[in-house]
Amino acid sequence: MTIQLGQTAPDFEQDSSRGRIRFHDYLGSSWGVLFSHPKDFTPVCTTELAAVARLELEWKKRDVKVIGLSVDSTENHASWAEDIRETQGQSLNFPVLADKDRTVSSLYGMVHPEADPSVTVRSVFVIDPNKKVRLTLTYPPSAGRNFAEILRVIDSLQLTDKNKVSTPSDWQPGQPVIISPALSNEDAKVRFPQGWKELRPYLRVVELRDETAQAAE
């Protein structure tokens, strides 16, 4: 199955390192990040799980719930979690699905037979409070994921959901954004009274004020 942007994230029920989880209930009204690992006791993923755990306050700040996945058992997850604590100096603070029967892996298209039919690829899904898939990423086994980039994209999604704007290449929070081409200049004057810089009629750059973002909420 191919998961596409805008699609409702498939619901599921699966065992995890923190007990049985029904995915949509787990997310509630929060944003979600579901990310998979080929299997337990893999070196790159050991560093990744620790990196996600270290970002606990950043996830909470954005009202994001994270959940990992591996095709191993809960028993293996417990042993792996201890390895992560000992080698990375960080305990896990989020659930890791024990997808031994590949229910979730199959549902989300995480097994790529041409890569390796026996394990999941390293996927990332960002899901909004309406349970819609907003971002999908698939990484090769050798390259560790950049979770700062995933946070950046969530910042962009949350900002652009509240304002008629898009974020340019390499955007960081607080930097100028692009006014949506669908917004006329007349409407833009109401929404952005601070004015903007028009590079082209379709490329209008604006610095958001705090009150502008608040008024759009």
Rank of each mutant, 00 (worst) to 15 (best):
V71A: 15
V71H: 11
D72L: 13
S73F: 08
T74Y: 10
E75Y: 11
N76F: 05
H77I: 15
H77A: 11
A78P: 12
A78Y: 09
W80F: 00
W80T: 04
A81E: 13
E82I: 01
E82T: 01
D83R: 15
D83V: 02
D83T: 06
D83P: 10
I84F: 09
I84E: 02
R85Q: 15
E86R: 15
T87R: 05
Q88S: 03
Q88C: 10
Q88V: 13
G89K: 00
L92Y: 07
N93L: 06
N93K: 02
N93W: 03
V96P: 14
V96S: 07
L97H: 05
A98S: 11
A98N: 05
D99T: 15
D99P: 15
K100M: 12
D101V: 00
D101Y: 10
D101E: 13
R102N: 10
R102Y: 01
R102M: 03
T103Y: 08
T103W: 03
V104K: 12
V104S: 01
S105G: 09
S105D: 02
S106M: 10
S106E: 08
L107C: 03
L107M: 05
G109Q: 08
G109F: 04
M110G: 09
M110N: 08
M110I: 07
V111D: 15
P113Q: 11
E114I: 03
A115D: 04
A115W: 10
A115F: 13
D116S: 05
D116W: 00
D116Q: 00
P117Q: 01
P117D: 08
P117S: 03
S118V: 06
V119T: 04
V119H: 04
T120M: 05
V121Y: 12
R122Q: 05
S123K: 02
S123W: 07
V124P: 01
V124R: 03
V124Q: 13
F125T: 00
V126Y: 00
V126L: 11
V126G: 05
V126I: 12
I127A: 02
I127P: 01
D128E: 11
N130I: 10
K131A: 08
K131M: 02
K131G: 04
K132T: 13
K132R: 02
V133Q: 08
R134T: 01
R134G: 00
L135P: 01
T136H: 08
T136P: 00
T136C: 12
L137A: 07
L137E: 13
L137D: 10
T138S: 15
Y139R: 09
P140V: 14
P140M: 12
P141S: 06
P141G: 06
S142H: 01
S142G: 08
A143E: 11
A143R: 13
G144P: 03
R145M: 00
N146V: 00
N146C: 03
F147H: 14
F147N: 07
A148V: 00
A148I: 04
A148R: 05
E149H: 05
E149K: 05
L151D: 12
L151Y: 04
R152T: 13
R152E: 08
V153R: 13
V153A: 04
D155N: 10
S156W: 09
S156I: 13
S156L: 10
S156M: 11
S156N: 15
L157I: 06
Q158T: 09
L159K: 06
L159G: 04
T160F: 06
D161F: 08
D161W: 02
K162P: 09
N163C: 01
N163K: 14
K164E: 09
V165W: 14
V165Q: 05
S166Y: 10
S166H: 11
S166Q: 12
P168T: 14
